[in-house]
Nucleic acid binder design. Structure first.
Lengths: 215, 215
DNA sequence: CTTCGATTGCACCGTCCGGTTTACTTTCTG
DNA sequence: CAGAAAGTAAACCGGACGGTGCAATCGAAG
């Protein structure tokens, strides 16, 4: 009833589809898989429930599709953050702190995607193994690899000191973001900005004690 | 029908109660809060559903009660592990590795308790704030404090080197256990023993590079 | 044995949910 | 314009669930 007046645009087929996907992402993230009813997803998408079942076989397929999308969205967003802060850092410590804060607190329109990551954790034991596996490789795996690449470059430039950038990247995420993640229940509850910054700066200092250039 | 033959013992009133609690812990942990039906909990406890509602006001109160119990059980178990490995360590690195493995993989009858921790994460945004808060202080907070105490002692004995045992304890859990936690989806999926040991030993080595005695 | 409280089985209520059916309308295309 | 493709609203189905009412039962204490 909403899109009736506005000509649906000649974007073509996937017009309703993207609305469904967006709505499913929102509702799944907000309610979790079971609480999210197909009716509420349809309402959120301003779409008939039948239309959802025209696009997806059942509720689970809808979830899996949306999970896959979100995995890529989060990964690309984080890769972008990493590049932005580590491409040519002037004050390395400050950039690492800023990057850590950005990675640990999903901002802008990505909260829904991070909420879906929580769904992956909640449903992990009930999801097909290929889903959890591909999430790890396409999600955290990609950001960790991107981190490692930058660390290798920085090490070659004398800004860091490590022979194993992979391990350094792992230690960065562990020291800098893992506690903020857990403290905020994976982003489900808000973490005061000052606490976040304290956690991240402490982690970055430890990281630089491990891998800083001037020892 | 099961306890009919055996005399219910004069343990007194809470006989059925503990059965209910145990069953709720098992089923909530296995299925999550919503999937766990009160009927299935009653079946697992070999108890009438009506009896559950004689002991608890509703399903949510049952969950909250069981969560509180599990918080303490996990905390005590982990404190015990910490004491056992760090009371008088001969080979400190080996003990730290063993402790890290023990902390990162819930064994014996504690898997159900750890499964409930997953429920806390899954329901965090829908739980009363006091519940999540008290979980943090009574759960991870206690184990971290116990770790810090041992690190302070070890530092005084010259086995470690840190002025801030609190921070050292945080970095230990982050470097040693956090990745194993995330890799296993908080214990929901099994993590191969060799991978676990590799993660933990790498974390311990980094920890000792940060806080080891001989530098 | 009687009494009393705890427990039990079971039917029941209202609700919600995943998914389907049907009949109708819209929109694009040729 | 004709007709296919897509969308819509609404009723509907079978099943599950949280929670209650109630009569019957059990076990121990007096």
């Amino acid at each position: 009833m909403t899109a009736a007046t506005t000509p649906p645009a000649r974007t073509g087929r996937p017009a309703k589809r993207v609305a469904i996907d967006r709505a499913a992402r929102v509702v799944f993230g907000r309610e979790g898989y079971i609480r999210a009813s197909v009716d509420s997803i349809a309402a959120e998408a301003h779409v008939s429930k039948r239309t959802i079942y025209n696009h997806y076989q059942d509720k689970e397929q809808l979830l899996l599709c949306v999970l896959k999308e979100s995995t890529h969205a989060v990964a690309e967003h984080q890769e972008e953050l990493i590049d932005r802060h580590l491409a040519s850092p002037v004050d390395l410590e400050a950039e690492l702190v800023a990057l850590g804060c950005a990675l640990a607190t999903p901002q802008s329109g990505f909260k829904e995607h991070f909420a879906l990551v929580r769904v992956i954790f909640a449903e992990a034991s009930r999801l097909p193994g290929e889903v959890t596996d591909s999430w790890r490789t396409e999600g955290p795996g990609r950001t960790q690899a991107r981190l490692a690449r930058h660390f290798a470059t920085l090490s070659a430039a004398g800004r860091l000191r490590t022979d194993e950038p992979q391990e350094a990247a792992a230690h960065f995420t562990q020291l800098v973001t893992s506690e903020a993640y857990e403290r905020s229940f994976h982003g489900a509850l808000p973490l005061p900005a000052d606490e976040l910054e304290a956690l991240v700066t402490a982690g970055v200092r430890a990281f630089l004690r491990l891998y800083g250039a001037r020892s």
